[in-house]
Write a protein that binds this DNA or RNA. Structure first.
Length: 291
DNA sequence: AAGTCCCTCAACCGCTCACTG
DNA sequence: TCAGTGAGCGGTTGAGGGACT
């Protein structure tokens, strides 16, 4: 038996969202909170698929989304995390809470792939090309091993879903950059009055606490200022807040260190505090060539 | 000015995962 | 244990706009 469609395809509107639709969606979420997407089209006048509503919210309307150019720091983060995690864009996005996985994915495919390809060509031209590749492959292999180890350990323990999107939505005080001013106002109101009937399993209280413990933002996170900082506080890295909260949870509980990620997180903090280069592991050479 | 090409990014599609009864 | 269902994720597409000829 085939999987039924998520919604009735007949009469479902496709294509770009209009400001009016945005307002309807935001108003609904303001009242009911994000989640239970299935009910959104039925309880509103939106002629949209539930998936479309969710994507519109998570990729565009959700508060805390930073738009505009990626900073050097963000680029390095993405490159580094992509080397460690592969194309797990959602996981990578949880380290860059102001960016959506879609944005990161697009940015990678459009900009960074080209840069890395260019770099690779350059590297081939220099004599130490093989050495760099071997180092990179070794580091990636080590990262994969660590992740596999963590994931296999995790399977033995209880699982908790990672809802980084909603952690962000409940914590950041920024507004999204929309062309529709009224939507922005709606969102501002929503930020002031968090939804009381949030149906998500992750409460705003816990997510706020957890989020704050992982990421520390400048107050103006709506700003596109390149100096915005995202520092990772490893001292407060709790199982609830980690990107790999399930993985990390199991690790912490079983006292098995996820050394590679921890090392990187620590180095990230050091790099920030000492104004040193973020990338000082496998990609330090390549990053230097890129930027 | 008009036509074409290229780039960007919002949105869609299809798959997998997680949860529930 | 298993089927049904909702939600999330990653790959891909196509419309729109800017750059170029």
């Amino acid at each position: 038996m085939g999987r039924p469609p998520c919604c009735d395809k007949i009469g479902v509107k496709k294509g770009p969202w209009t400001p009016e639709e945005d307002i309807i969606l935001v108003s609904y979420i303001q009242e009911h909170g994000p989640g239970n997407w299935r009910s959104v089209p039925t309880n509103t006048d939106l002629l949209r698929c539930s998936k479309s509503c969710r994507l519109r919210w998570t990729n565009y309307l959700r508060p805390g989304i930073k738009r505009g150019n990626f900073t050097d720091h963000e680029e390095k983060m993405i490159i580094h995390l992509q080397a460690l995690l592969g194309n797990r864009w959602a996981a990578i996005a949880s380290y860059l809470p102001q960016r959506t996985d879609n944005d990161i994915k697009n940015y990678w495919n459009i900009h960074l792939k080209k840069k890395l390809k260019k770099l690779q060509i350059n590297e081939e031209e220099v004599s130490n090309k093989g050495q760099w590749e071997r180092r990179l492959q070794t580091d990636i292999h080590m990262a994969k091993q660590a992740l596999c180890e963590a994931l296999s350990l995790d399977k033995a323990t209880s699982k908790q879903p990672c809802n980084s999107y909603h952690e962000v939505s409940g914590s950041c005080s920024s507004i999204y950059a929309s062309s529709a001013e009224n939507i922005s106002k709606l969102l501002q109101n929503w930020m002031k009055i968090p939804p009381s009937s949030n149906s998500e399993t992750n409460s705003s209280a816990t997510t706020q606490e957890g989020f704050d413990s992982l990421f520390t933002f400048n107050s103006n996170c709506h700003s596109s200022d390149a100096s915005q900082s995202v520092s990772v506080d490893t001292a407060n890295l709790t199982p609830e807040t980690s990107l790999f909260q399930d993985e990390t949870k199991s690790i912490l509980e079983t006292q098995v260190p996820l050394t590679l990620l921890e090392k990187w997180l620590f180095e990230d903090v050091v790099a920030h505090e000492g104004q040193e280069d973020l990338i000082n592991m496998s990609l330090e050479d390549s990053a230097a060539g890129l930027f």
